[in-house]
Design a binder for these strands. Structure first.
Length: 470
RNA sequence: GGCGCCAUAGCCAAGUGGUAAGGCAGAGGUCUGCAACACCUCCAUCCCCAGUUCAAAUCUGGGUGGUGCCUCCA
């Protein structure tokens, strides 16, 4: 399994620190609002990577945090005249709902900053003790010059950064790159008691602390959006390695951005969308499928037109599954023919292709091509069979690959506008009409059902019905 | 100013040395009582120029056009 490591800028063979186990940390959202469509990408892709590793037999300890103390949350809380926790609780709940919609497996742990304050203070204290941090007034800064590896992840040179510094230099800092570990609270802001003064933690320290607490000093994979490379992840490395004295994360993974109509999403451009808004019009599974249709490190563009194309592609897969599932349930033969046994063996090539793609830095676009190849194979061979075991075998194999990508294929709880009995009665009547060559009546029944969102399909194994929208 | 990334058919998108996966859309055909689903066939020589090589979309240099980070940000 090869994995692109931002730290070394190369694809490397994946070897976990502890054989068979993967310790993975993914930076989670700041919960001041619904998560936006851009957040959906790391949710989906790192979930998919996790699932593939589990498919490969690794035991994955997957941690994703929630940042629940932040200026934006405080502002919103003040605007609504409620406690900060009311805001963060609300949007954590919503984020979890979105994650579920995207078919993201629940992380092993989802820590929140406000519940890790003791450990945060402890790590800052360690950094001060070790001479990697200093206090000015009530503010604690990390001393970037004291950590010789600073810049190794982002490829930035600390002195170039100084020269190009765009923001006003905080004169309290020893170096412009020094960043805040702890800052005093302002009037009306939440605060925690700390040895160097009441206040709250800076943004970067939380991830170092939570990774350490839930996974250990050295972890296998640290992931997040590409914009986090600098300064956030660079700073995390500095904090963790300075405090713990061992390498922080072995592999660093970063996902590319989602653009909207070829532009970066931003509030000022007016093209900012929450996932919830999008999901109101585009099913979650289409959004997930769309995200997986490109390589995770490349930027992808989001538009109505592309969603429609993704919808159709996904429908093709789902249609196939439904079709072979119908055969698996209705086929009468209980034995596989010799030809079919050979076909099952032949179909293993799709799994091999799939694995090869995923082994190559989680190339989901390529893996999807294997699934489409498999779908075509199934459409040709399974629809021609009357063998239950054959149909079942192929179905199970496709489903297993789809599960790795998180493509939801299980018969969802479809709510028809009629009961199954009613539908089946209509079908029976139509079959009679057909037998009597009364095609006018047969078509009438089909049209009636169609207008109620139910599509009939005549197959050799019987009449199948499904939802119009699939 | 510093550090990156990208450029493949109408659209999306794999492929990083041996003569272009897959999906969407489109055209024609088969199946069907008619449909639907499905299947078959057709649909690119990989931004430009130069170079390396028996061989390049794939490597090197130059150019053009995009774009990201350096500031909260997935």
């Amino acid at each position: 399994m090869k994995i692109y490591n931002t730290l070394t800028k190369k694809k490397e063979e994946f070897e976990p620190i502890e054989p068979g186990k993967v310790k993975m940390y993914v930076c989670g959202p700041t919960v001041y609002d619904y998560i936006h469509i851009g957040n959906a990408r790391p949710y989906v892709i790192f979930d998919c990577i996790r699932k593939y590793m589990e498919y490969r037999g690794f035991e994955v300890n997957y941690v994703q945090n929630f940042t629940d103390v932040d200026d934006k949350i405080i502002k919103k809380a003040n605007d609504e005249h409620v406690d900060m926790q009311v805001i963060s609780d609300r949007y954590i709940k919503e984020a979890l709902q979105d994650a579920e919609g995207l078919n993201v497996k629940k992380p092993s742990s989802t820590p929140r900053v406000t519940e890790e304050m003791d450990e945060i203070i402890e790590m800052i204290d360690t950094l001060i003790q070790k001479g990697h941090a200093y206090v000015v007034g009530g503010t604690v800064y990390f001393d970037t010059k004291s950590f010789k590896g600073y810049g190794k992840l982002s490829g930035k040179n600390i002195d170039d950064l100084e020269a190009g510094a765009r923001i006003e230099v905080d004169t309290d800092k020893k170096h412009p790159c020094d960043f805040v570990l702890w800052k005093p609270n302002k009037e009306g802001e939440p605060k925690w008691v700390a040895p160097w003064g009441d206040g709250r933690p800076g943004w970067h320290i939380e991830c170092s602390v939570m990774a350490k607490k839930y996974l250990g000093d050295s972890i296998d994979i640290h992931a997040g959006g590409e914009d986090l490379v600098f300064p956030h992840h660079e700073n995390e490395i500095a904090q963790s390695e300075a405090a713990n004295g061992v390498p922080f994360s072995k592999y660093w993974l970063h996902n590319g951005f989602i653009n909207i109509d070829n532009e970066k999403m931003s509030k000022s451009k007016g093209n900012f969308f929450t996932l919830r808004e999008i999901a109101a019009e585009i099913p979650y599974d289409v959004i997930r499928f769309f995200i997986l249709s490109g390589h995770y490190r490349s930027p992808i563009n989001f538009s109505r037109e592309l969603m429609t194309a993704a919808q159709h592609g996904l429908d093709r897969i789902k249609e196939c599954i439904k079709s072979i599932d119908f055969i698996a349930q209705n086929a009468t033969a209980t034995e596989m023919s010799a030809d079919e046994t050979a076909l099952v063996a032949e179909s293993n090539k799709f799994r091999r292709d799939f694995e090869e793609s995923m082994d190559n830095d989680f190339n989901t676009a390529d893996a999807l091509a294997s699934i489409f190849d498999f779908v075509k194979f199934a459409n040709i061979h399974v629809t021609a069979t009357a063998s239950k075991p054959f149909a079942t075998e192929i179905k199970d194999n496709i489903l297993q690959l789809c599960d790795v990508l998180g493509i939801q294929t299980t018969a969802e709880n479809v709510q028809f506008s009629m009961t199954d009995e009613e539908i089946e009665a209509c079908i029976a009547e139509r079959q009679q009409a057909k037998a009597a060559k009364d095609f006018k009546r047969a078509d009438e029944i089909r049209d009636q059902l169609n207008s109620r969102g139910i599509v009939l399909q005549d197959t050799p194994s019987g009449v199948r019905y499904s939802h119009k929208s699939l």
